[in-house]
């Protein structure tokens, strides 16, 4: 399962990713963290809450994330908001594949994270069956606060990530476990 998504600073080994994070890594991490462009993959109820997060009251712009890029090439984080049916699963994967590295995935709400109440023949029981997920947000739908919380969590991940993580063996192995090249 997707539980093996961790920050790349694993046990130090001679060919592992970075022994120490350089200050350059830190700066780029900071830049990335403050400029996370979301790709809202909004399918249902949670999509409306994402809109509310974009709107005046909660204002995701404060995190530098209001520039929503519907083109996957330009997006940094994929926000899967809403139920993903089995019919839709290949599309989610396709969008994930089209995204340029570094990319993060947030599963917003019970349906995207685990299927929620829709334990049915037609619904995918959590998107982590097709793509690796970085942050899960509980709630059905989660409140905008919780979505912001998730964005902050991704900021944290981005900030602490080494520049080499995306080239590391560990990461490749993770992708391979989802049969993504």
């Amino acid at each position: 399962m997707a539980s093996d998504i961790k920050l790349a600073e694993g046990p130090p080994s001679y060919d592992g990713p970075g022994f120490q994070a350089t200050s350059f890594d830190k700066i780029i991490g900071l830049a990335r963290a403050n400029s996370l462009w979301p790709l809202p993959f909004a399918t249902s109820c949670c999509g409306i809450e994402f809109m509310a997060t974009m709107a005046a009251r909660y204002d995701i712009a404060r995190f530098g994330s209001e520039r929503i890029s519907f083109s996957p090439r330009q997006a940094d984080m994929l926000l899967v908001a809403g139920t993903i049916a089995k019919k839709m699963a290949p599309v989610v994967k396709q969008v994930y594949l089209q995204m340029a590295e570094p990319r993060w995935v947030i599963a917003i709400g019970a349906c995207a994270s685990s299927g929620g109440i829709f334990d049915t023949y037609s619904v995918l029981q959590g998107i982590d069956r097709v793509i690796p997920v970085d942050v899960y947000v509980p709630g059905c739908p989660p409140r905008p606060e919780q979505i912001l919380e998730a964005v902050m969590q991704v900021q944290e991940l981005a900030h602490n990530e080494s520049l080499r993580r995306r080239n590391s063996d560990e990461y490749q192995k993770l992708l391979a476990s989802y049969s993504i090249q």
Binding site: N34, S35, R62, E66
Partner: peptide, 20 residues
């Protein structure tokens, strides 16, 4: 209120974008 978390009043926002 727009970007306000990257630097004071979000002034570093363009630099963060460029860096990213």
């Amino acid at each position: 209120i727009g970007p306000d978390r990257a630097g004071p009043w979000g002034l570093l926002q363009p630099i963060a974008d460029a860096g990213k």
